[in-house]
């Protein structure tokens, strides 16, 4: 169980992915999509591990009075502030709390989707995964209406928003449009997918209703969040920290490399023998592309293009071929269970 099963899992999933590449149809296609979807999700948890490790290390330094303890506090403070700005607010409940703008968008979204389903998706070719047939459309229309009404109710009852009373007229217009959507279901009685004339007419009608509904929803901008200090990806502080702390520090830390390459070039770049002289000359030709060379400019450009597209290309191609063969060989060793260092010890 501890070692054999993981090895079997690697073998099966690896072999499946290889086969899938050559037989991309039917079941294998669906399974492939699932595996991609799932692996991304699993990966997110793995990434979170790294962040937890950072917290543990910093906490440990503070607890043991490490000389850098005060800097570890700065690290943890930065982390905590970013979490505070990024999540909506302290004590927030995922299912209950929405921002007014978000709720408004969801109403508009539902209307837009209803319109799109009736006017576009019914007409897509049947093998197109976006397409829906008439029966699905009939089932979906009331769902769109339900969803809209759910958000309207939230506006009217939730403590998270204020100003809903002044918006009664627009809220009523939204509700009315939702009702109309629901009523449209009956119009599809006996209409088949082939009857494009009727479908077009009904689609236009639904599209009209949806547009009215979405417009009314967009007018609901008088409804505001009770908590002005809302967080999320669009939060002022979240963006400000990125743009004015992360960008300058990360960019400047890397810019130190400009100085180190200057000093490295000065100390280590010597024409010791023919090989290093060849390297030096190639580097000079590529560097000369940015210099003002007067009458030589044309020659330098031609020479540097030649260096890049003939010898450089040949060298890099040989390296890529080597790398490619190396990756394939290693991957095969992993799938066949010959290379198993990823399992760790034990």
């Amino acid at each position: 169980m501890k070692r054999q099963f993981p090895l079997l899992l690697v073998f099966l999933s690896g072999v499946f992915m290889v086969i899938q590449y050559f037989v991309p149809a039917g079941f294998s296609e669906k399974a492939y999509e699932f595996l991609i979807d799932w692996t991304i999700i699993i990966g997110i948890f793995a990434l979170a591990l790294g962040i937890w490790s950072l917290v543990r290390v910093s906490y440990h330094k503070i607890k043991t009075g490490h000389p850098d303890a005060k800097y570890s506090m700065v690290t943890l403070a930065g982390l905590a502030l970013m979490l505070f700005f990024g999540f909506q607010f302290p004590g927030y409940d995922y299912k209950e709390v929405y921002r007014a703008s978000q709720a408004r968008d969801y109403i508009a979204t539902n209307f837009n989707n209803a319109g799109a389903a009736a006017t576009e998706k019914v007409f897509l070719p049947e093998n197109d995964t976006l397409s829906i047939d008439v029966a699905t459309l009939r089932a979906e229309l009331p769902q769109f209406a339900d969803s809209v009404e759910h958000w309207v109710e939230l506006f009217q009852t939730s403590d998270w928003f204020e100003g809903a009373d002044n918006e009664a007229e627009d809220l009523a217009a939204v509700t009315a449009a939702a009702e109309e959507l629901r009523a449209m279901v009956a119009q599809y009685d006996g209409v088949s997918r082939a009857d494009t004339a009727t479908l077009t007419a009904l689609g236009a009608q639904i599209s009209g209703i949806s547009e009215r509904g979405a417009e009314a929803a967009n007018r609901l901008d008088g409804i505001t969040d009770v908590y002005p200090f809302t967080g999320g990806l669009e939060s002022y502080m979240f963006r400000a920290f990125f743009e004015h702390i992360m960008i300058p520090i990360q960019a400047t830390m890397f810019s130190l490399l400009a100085f180190y390459i200057a000093s490295a070039a000065y100390r280590a770049f010597r024409a010791r023998n023919l090989l290093s002289t060849v390297l030096l000359i190639a580097a000079f030709i590529v560097m000369a592309r940015v210099l003002e060379m007067g009458p030589l400019t044309d020659l330098v450009n031609k020479l540097s293009a030649w260096v890049l597209l003939v010898p450089n290309l040949a060298a890099k191609r040989a390296i890529w071929i080597g790398v490619g063969l190396g990756i394939v060989a290693t991957s095969l060793k992993v799938i066949l269970g010959i290379e198993r260092s990823y399992l760790g010890r034990d």
Binding site: L54, M82, L83, G86, F87, I249, Q250
Partner: peptide, 15 residues
């Protein structure tokens, strides 16, 4: 600067 950017980047990534 070095330490604050580590914390802020980690927080950013969580969000």
């Amino acid at each position: 600067a070095e330490h604050i950017v580590v914390g802020v980047s980690a927080g950013y990534f969580v969000i």
